[in-house]
């Protein structure tokens, strides 16, 4: 087994950048995508009555499938179920082989690549770029709590719809 395959556990990329991955593009277009998402979130909030009518539990599977398809393409999303893209410059931290959600480790290479996958740009170096484009560097200074492994695979769009309707 190649050493890098040792990282192929839950939520961690086997290949540094999957073929057809758009995640570096997404980071360089973070500002536009983030503003689109804010509109999309409002739209999701409007759908709340429909979701409630069908039942949020019923919606979970189809919504998670759709969310996975879209976000996997754009961000190499791992469906952690507690999306923090808005705090990470649209660079998904679950692609970090150490699963770091609070910033880069100390092992970032001089060329800005990952300690573990030398060919992969560090997720957090990308995150910092994205956050600068989004004007949200300050948000990256807020410490995130430990990940809840139970939420893995769940749709965050549904959670956003619920939260948006409640606000």
């Amino acid at each position: 087994m190649r050493p890098q395959d040792a990282f192929a556990h839950t939520g961690v990329a086997r290949a540094p950048l999957p073929p057809g991955s758009l995640r570096l593009w997404s980071v360089s277009h973070a500002a536009g995508l983030a503003s689109f998402y804010r509109k999309f979130e409002r739209f999701l909030g409007k759908l709340d009555p429909i979701f409630r009518w069908i039942g949020y539990d019923q919606m979970e599977k189809p919504m998670a499938t759709l969310e996975r398809a879209v976000k996997a393409k754009l961000f190499d999303c791992r469906m952690c179920g507690q999306c923090v893209l808005s705090s990470t410059g649209l660079s998904c931290p679950m692609n970090c082989p150490k699963g770091l959600r609070n910033g880069p480790c100390g092992g970032v290479r001089a060329n800005g690549n990952c300690e573990v996958h030398p060919a992969m740009p560090c997720v957090w170096v990308q995150a910092f770029k994205g956050a600068e484009l989004m004007g949200s560097v300050a948000k990256m200074g807020e410490a995130l709590p430990p990940i809840d492994q139970r939420k893995s695979g769940k749709s965050t769009w549904l959670q956003a719809a619920k939260a948006h309707a409640a606000s």
Partner: peptide, 20 residues
């Protein structure tokens, strides 16, 4: 990362990060 050491075949845990 485990790739740096003498047991690269080990499972990395990383359930928490240093901040957490």
């Amino acid at each position: 990362g485990v790739q740096a050491g003498d047991h690269p075949e080990a499972k990395p845990v990383f359930d928490l990060d240093s901040t957490a």
